[in-house]
């Protein structure tokens, strides 16, 4: 595998990671709504914190992605 192909594969893998993180965000939204309905403030804040970390991770992956 040459350098160009390897770079393209790595780039694709990073894109897949970001897709997985976005899917996880959708799950976190459902958890947040459930916390809202049951009035569990602790769960709502924990979900928000995880969600922000996941979004930051996705942004980090974007930095590594080839132009």
């Amino acid at each position: 595998m040459n350098v160009v192909q390897r770079g393209r594969r790595t780039s694709s893998a990073l894109a897949v990671y970001v897709i997985i993180l976005v899917a996880f965000q959708v799950f976190l939204i459902t958890v947040a709504v459930e916390a809202f309905v049951t009035d569990e403030e602790g769960l709502a804040w924990a979900t928000a914190a995880v969600s922000v970390v996941v979004a930051a991770g996705a942004a980090l992956f974007l930095r590594w992605l080839r132009p």
Binding site: I29, A35, A44, A48, S51, V52, A55
Partner: peptide
Amino acid sequence: YLVLGAGAMAAGNVGIAVWTQ
């Protein structure tokens, strides 16, 4: 675009937490 979407959902989650509080 995906990252922007993730950021929007994170902002939404924080909004829900604030609303719950």
